[in-house]
Design a protein around this nucleic acid. Sequence first.
DNA 1: ATAGGGTTAG
Length: 311
Amino acid sequence: MLISNPSKLPPISSLTHLLRTLSSIAVPSHNHISHLLLEQKSATQVLDTFQWASKLPSFTHSPSTHRALIHKLCTFRRFDIAHQVLDEMPHSIGLPPDDHIFVTLIHGLGRAHLVKQVIKVLDLVRRYNQKPSLKIFNSILDVLVKEDIDIAREFYRKKMMASGVKGDDYTFGILMKGLCLTNRIGDGFKLLQAIKSRGVAPNTVVYNTLLHALCRNGKVGRARSLMNEMEDPNDVTFNILISGYCGEENLVQALVMLDKCFGLGYVPDVVTTTKVLEILCNDGRVMEAVKVIERVESNGGLVDVVAYNTD
DNA sequence: ATAGGGTTAG
């Protein structure tokens, strides 16, 4: 048995103690026990708490309490125990681990940079006779793009495409993020092209990711023309472009975009507004800055302390 | 489960 003897409980915090006392009076909810688990400071404490809860009269663990347990075990890097817990789920609650719990494990392994183990989650899912869902594929892909874009691409080609799993909007967003993270702008455009060649319009997130990478790399003009082909630019799109123009101190274009932004009913966010105010004030155009503040505020936007200090 | 993120001196 992997859960140790509760009689030798380690010292526990007073909050934990209080919660334990309360739960022995009333039947605790799954939510309640999950929070209690998340509060524990060591793998032993989490396991003890989990074990203690399972002995409470009229309490049965659920997928959600298991998820909390797995999450905590991952933060303590006890992936071995996490796997054992998953294995025990079919007998302990009569249910195999669900998607949500696999995603939790994938995140945990990802935080520990355990790339190979993350990919192996696919086999783990199959061991419970389940077909890995697109959500699981995407979660794995999300970990991989942050580690190594080439491994991510190989995973996409060999594991997803080869098993007949078609990527969705999320998939392309994740891939674009991975490419842009390493400033592979050329590849970003290729991906955009690949999406279009499937006969679908790339979604706004995919575009925005590439727009941001362009702006970061001093290619605001290219970002502007790419924006022209977007069907539905949103507030984030405008924040990116306005910030981009501010970054190269192109006050004229920044203000043009700002107008366009308001014209479509979007209000720049706090960060973007501050940048606009900054370059206006640097240019001594304080009156216009005040007008911008009024315009943002009257449209329901926020201007914060940092902006007011800009002088 | 997917996009961005600022200020600080004479």
